[in-house]
């Protein structure tokens, strides 16, 4: 649970906003911190074979408890130099295309795919638009739906809209306890509805973007507990918690045929939506 006292937030702040701040905490474990703790023989692969390599997405072959799988993850930087190198975790089209390339490689060799979501959003820049940011995300959504292997998605920090979802079409979708997953950032939402990006806290509450919110809306399958105070307080414990959920999720999907996995993933997303008929 979220602690009563949390150094990064005002004590009176809304729980959703506290979680937004924890999800963005400067010391929060990023994808590579988990990859290092969870996998052995991690071997990074690079490039989309079309334009370039995007450091905001890390992909590679790995062993998880003796079983080979493909890991694809959005990666933020820690210090200023790393942040710039990783483009603040905002992938460009070549990043999404690299991700798709390696996921299809995993499909070809029948290896499960594990993805970690942690991005403020897909990069909104001129070059990204020129190279088809929208097309890259759209294609990933459709092609992830087609993968004949188990796909486990874990939102470890910031699930920034389409930029996160582009790696998010999984058989199992989990969120870390203090991760957030939203259609729009609280700041942008506040700028639109209150015409004041300073009212992000209100917007964070209205958007229902915490892990318990998404579980209640039946958009995710489970919540991975974090150590007291948040994952940044004890990254090893957070990784251990993630490991247990990852193992369980992969075991649950083990034994399903490629067709069953595709059908399972399709049915799961097909059922999302709230309306009166």
């Amino acid at each position: 649970m979220v602690p009563e006292e949390n150094p990064g937030a005002q004590p009176e702040s809304h729980p959703a906003w506290r979680r937004v701040q924890l999800a963005r905490h400067p010391k929060r474990p990023h994808s590579l911190d988990y990859i290092q703790r969870l996998f052995t023989d991690f071997q990074e692969v690079h490039g989309d074979r079309t334009f370039g390599d995007d450091p905001a997405i890390v992909a590679g072959l790995a062993q998880f408890e003796g079983n080979p799988l493909m890991v694809v993850a959005e990666q933020k930087g820690r210090d200023t130099k790393q942040k710039l190198f990783r483009n603040f975790g905002m992938p460009k089209p070549e990043g999404y295309r690299k991700a798709l390339r390696v996921m299809q490689m995993a499909d070809k060799f029948r290896r499960p795919v594990v993805t970690f979501l942690d991005t403020p959003g897909a990069y909104p820049g001129i070059d990204a638009e020129e190279r088809g940011q929208a097309e890259a995300i759209a294609r990933n959504l459709r092609e992830m739906a087609r993968l004949g292997v188990p796909v486990v998605v874990v939102c470890i920090g910031e699930g920034g809209s389409g930029g996160a979802l582009a790696l998010g079409v999984g058989n199992t979708v989990l969120m870390m306890e203090n991760a957030v997953y939203s259609v729009i950032s609280p700041e942008s939402c506040a700028a639109i509805i209150y015409r004041d990006s300073g009212k992000a806290e209100q917007a964070a509450a209205a958007l229902k973007l915490t892990a318990p919110d998404l579980l209640e809306l039946e958009l995710i399958d489970g919540i991975i507990p974090e150590p007291p105070g948040g994952a940044q307080e004890d990254p090893d414990a957070a990784a251990e918690s993630l490991r247990q959920h990852l193992r369980r999720s992969l075991n649950q999907l083990d034994g399903l045929s490629p067709d069953q996995l595709v059908q399972h993933r399709y049915a799961k997303f097909r059922n999302m939506g709230n309306f009166f008929a």
Binding site: Y181, S182, L207
Partner: peptide, 8 residues
């Protein structure tokens, strides 16, 4: 919110 996102 995220319900819209998942429609994608």
């Amino acid at each position: 919110g995220a319900v819209s996102l998942m429609q994608m």
